[in-house]
């Protein structure tokens, strides 16, 4: 198999397989979560709609909070930067938009390359600081397991390889493209197996917390 053939395969069938595996895995994990069920709360709620409080928390936990910023600046700032950064890179980098268009038919306009380049650097920097903090800070170190470092690595790799690819570094273009795509596939397949599940379940967890507190009239 030539490099070109391999590239065609990973971009085409390889990607399809990875996406299907990811979706199937996530569906199984969501199902096993939802099938557990939740008992109806029989106490009289203080508010007419507790669900509203659930949705409120889904939104508000994404907003910057002074309390958290003051209490834990490193995790808070780097967490914010790399989440927003990843989102921008995935959604607004023109080649990614074209790739998604080929896959789904949807299209939107992207951001200039120089901006994406800057965001990528900043994202990598934030992620490196996160890693350093996980190793250096005693709380983070105490609660970290192998999977935390593994997840960090597979999240970092697509960003790094994408950056190297754009700047034509390290490997010839096609080879680097293969490495980049495979790193994304690794990330996708790992989603249902790791804490990357939070990408899907954070809406549920925030909603349940917000709804339960809303019953008591507390905005959390």
């Amino acid at each position: 198999m030539t490099t070109m053939e391999l590239l065609t395969w990973v971009r085409g069938p390889g990607m399809t397989i990875a996406i299907i595996l990811m979706l199937f895995g996530v569906a199984v994990r969501l199902l096993e979560m939802l099938l557990l069920g939740r008992k109806k709360d029989l106490s009289v709620a203080r508010v007419p709609s507790t669900a509203k409080y659930g949705w409120r928390t889904v939104l508000t936990r994404s907003l910057p909070s002074m309390a958290c910023l003051k209490a834990i600046p490193v995790t808070f700032i780097t967490g914010y930067i790399f989440h927003v950064g990843l989102l921008i890179i995935v959604v607004f980098y023109v080649p990614h938009i074209l790739f998604i268009r080929d896959l789904t038919g949807l299209e939107w306009s992207g951001l200039p390359f120089w901006l994406i380049d800057g965001v990528t650097l900043l994202t990598m920097l934030a992620m490196l600081v996160t890693l350093w903090y996980r190793v250096w800070d005693k709380v983070r170190r105490y609660i970290s397991r192998f999977s935390d470092y593994f997840v960090w690595t597979i999240t970092f790799l697509p960003v790094l390889t994408g950056y190297l690819l754009y700047h034509r570094q390290f490997l010839p273009y096609n080879e680097m493209m293969i490495v980049h795509i495979v790193s994304i596939q690794l990330l996708l397949i790992s989603m249902p197996m790791t804490k990357l599940m939070h990408t899907f379940t954070f809406v549920f967890s925030r909603w349940y917390s917000g709804e339960a507190a809303g019953r008591k009239g507390v905005k959390v």
Partner: peptide
Amino acid sequence: IDTPIASFFNSCVHCGMCAGACLFYETTQ
């Protein structure tokens, strides 16, 4: 263990932010 609990464990990213909110961690480190 119910659906909310499963969603909580699925969502935890091990960021450790909860430590700073707890009086026992804050006062003992």
